[in-house]
Computed example of a mutant assay.
Amino acid sequence: MPEWSFTLLVNQPLTAEQADVFDHCDAFADGSVSYTLGPGNPEDHACVPRPGVLRELSCDIDAPTLLDAVAQAARDVRLVPGLRAVGVRYDDLVTLEEAAQRCGRELSRMREEFAGFPDPEPGAGGTEFYSWREIAEWLARAGVDVPEAPPGLLVADRALRLADALEGVDVPPGTLRSLGLPVG
C-alpha cells in the first residue's frame, strides 16, 4: 500500500493538553502524524516557530489513495478534543519517490530519456529533495500532463474547508440538498 505525504491543516495550534492526548492516542502511535508544539510563553524564547507551522500536522499515511489517507488523518484528529482538520496541502519539496507518486510515473527511466531534470535542492543533507514545481515543469516539457494538484487533494481540501465553514452553523437540510450536498 502506498504511503502518502501531505500537510493537514488544523483549526488551532495544539495546546499542551491536546498534545498529551495526541501523544497517548493509539491512532497516532505509529508516528504517521506529527505536530509542532509552540512554547507556553513565546515571549520567553528567542526563537519560536512561525505561527502557521503550529496549525500543521505532517502526515505520512499508508492508504490505497491520497483521499483515503487524508480522510483517515482527518477522522483521527477528531479524537483529540477541540481539534479538527480544516484543510490539506502538498509541500513543494519532495523526494524522487514522492514525485513519482504524484505524477504516477517512474521517473528514473524518464530522467535517462529526457535531459534537464532539476537538480536537488541545496543543503538537504542525506536525503535529496527536489522542487515539485520544477519537476512538474520538466514533465510538461517532456510531454507529460501533470495537474498542479491531484484531484484527490483538491476534493479533500475543499471538503475539509466546507466542513469547517459549516461547523456550528445551522443550515437547513433542504438548503444543503439544493447545493448538491448529501444530508445524513
Rank of each mutant, 00 (worst) to 15 (best):
I61K: 02
D62N: 10
D62S: 08
D62A: 13
D62C: 12
A63S: 01
T65A: 15
L66N: 11
L67P: 08
D68I: 11
D68E: 09
A69G: 01
A69P: 03
A69H: 00
V70A: 00
V70P: 13
A71D: 01
A73N: 14
A74V: 11
A74K: 02
R75E: 04
D76H: 05
V77T: 08
V77R: 05
R78Q: 08
R78W: 02
L79M: 11
L79C: 13
V80E: 04
P81E: 00
P81D: 05
P81Y: 02
G82A: 05
L83Y: 11
R84S: 04
A85S: 13
A85D: 09
V86K: 00
V86L: 04
G87D: 09
G87L: 05
V88D: 06
R89G: 12
R89K: 14
Y90H: 04
D91G: 15
D92T: 07
D92V: 06
D92Q: 01
L93T: 14
V94A: 01
T95F: 02
L96E: 04
E97R: 12
E97F: 02
E97S: 09
A100G: 05
A100Y: 08
A100L: 10
Q101R: 13
Q101T: 14
Q101W: 05
R102M: 09
C103V: 01
G104V: 12
G104H: 03
G104N: 10
G104A: 06
R105M: 12
R105N: 10
E106Q: 12
E106C: 06
E106N: 07
L107G: 13
S108K: 11
S108E: 13
S108T: 15
R111S: 00
R111D: 05
R111P: 13
E112K: 12
E112F: 07
E113P: 10
E113I: 03
A115F: 15
G116N: 05
F117Q: 07
D119E: 10
P120L: 01
P120H: 06
E121Y: 13
A124R: 15
G125M: 09
G125Q: 03
G126C: 15
G126I: 14
T127Y: 08
T127L: 13
F129E: 06
F129A: 02
F129M: 07
Y130W: 14
W132Q: 09
R133L: 07
E134V: 03
E134T: 04
I135W: 00
I135N: 11
A136Y: 10
A136L: 10
A136G: 13
A136E: 14
E137S: 14
W138E: 04
L139G: 04
L139E: 03
R141Y: 14
